[in-house]
């Protein structure tokens, strides 16, 4: 394999995992913007997305075109439940308490997943038959392309939603200034619930498209969720574009780092770069710090 082909291979694989980190990071941003809490159950949304695909595609034999939206809907529902049953009902409005509720919810989810799906790794069928393709010197599976395409499509839908629909703008208004939004008659609770649903849906999407490569298990999303969190911090926490840039950067760093040194160091390389970036730019790559007071 030539150097060019190797580089191309690392870049493609970095973009693939980076896409997953970006989707997870977007989930973190959505919930943070709506509520200012860090949702540590984001990784479990990813796990459930993969597990649902295992059941719906493999066991129930549904076509992918049906299984994927169904998996997304189920996990979006779990997101709404997390908000309605745990976050909303908490007696305390203290952010630390609310964040810990998500940590507890994450442990609970993992326990339930383990009861239902067991401990073993489960093979999830890919979205289309596994025929290796050559692309710019790299060898890819169709699943790699699915991941890139579905991530791009999800980002395009989000951009449209937040910039060109009234409901999307209302979600942004609640994030910018909840009191002023309420005074305009916007139901802030509904927008928060919608943010949890979207975060769940994005997590499910990430899990559904990556597990044909990694296999599914009750805890497969945990590490991906943490990397998504790191990606969100890298990009500037709460910034959507930052989440995407942060996710892809982290994926590329891991992949190129593993190629240049050893795959044993891939997590270390990624996190060292994350620390360096945060030393130089504590707000993250695209973070603007506090929204200008008006």
């Amino acid at each position: 394999m030539s150097g060019w082909e190797q580089l191309s291979q690392y870049v493609m694989s970095g973009l693939t995992t980076g896409s997953i980190y970006a989707l997870a990071a977007l989930g973190f941003c959505l919930i943070y913007n709506a509520t200012h809490i860090v949702n540590f159950a984001q990784g479990d949304f990813i796990s459930l997305g993969g597990l649902m695909m295992y059941t719906l595609l493999g066991a129930a034999g549904l076509p992918a075109l049906l299984a994927l939206p169904l998996a997304v809907a189920v996990v979006a529902g779990l997101g709404v439940m997390l908000e309605a049953l745990a976050i909303r009902r908490a007696k305390s409005r203290d952010l630390t308490v609310l964040i810990f509720i998500t940590v507890a919810a994450s442990a609970l989810f993992r326990g339930v997943f383990k009861e239902i799906w067991g401990k073993q790794a489960l093979a999830v069928p890919p979205l289309s038959p596994d025929v290796p393709l050559r692309f710019l010197g790299a060898t890819l599976t169709p699943q790699n392309l699915w991941i890139l395409a579905i991530t791009l499509a999800a980002i395009a839908v989000l951009i449209y939603f937040f910039n060109h629909t009234l409901t999307g703008r209302a979600v942004r208004a609640v994030a910018i200034n909840p009191k002023a939004a309420a005074l305009m008659g916007i139901d802030t609770r509904r927008m928060v619930r919608l943010s949890f649903a979207l975060a769940g849906g994005l997590g499910a999407l990430a899990g559904a498209i990556i597990t044909p490569i990694t296999t599914a298990s009750y805890h497969v999303g945990v590490m991906m969720g943490l990397k998504g969190f790191a990606a969100a911090v890298l990009g500037g926490y709460g910034n959507f574009l930052g989440a995407i840039v942060g996710g892809l950067t982290l994926g590329l760093l891991e992949s190129l780092g593993a190629g240049a040194l050893s795959s044993a160091y891939k997590d270390v390389i990624a996190f060292v770069v994350l620390l360096l970036v945060l030393f130089i730019r504590p707000r993250g790559l695209l973070g603007r710090g506090e929204e200008a007071r008006v």
Partner: peptide
């Protein structure tokens, strides 16, 4: 009070 416009919008 204080206008509270949605600054980035």
């Amino acid at each position: 009070e204080g206008r509270q416009v949605f600054g980035p919008l």
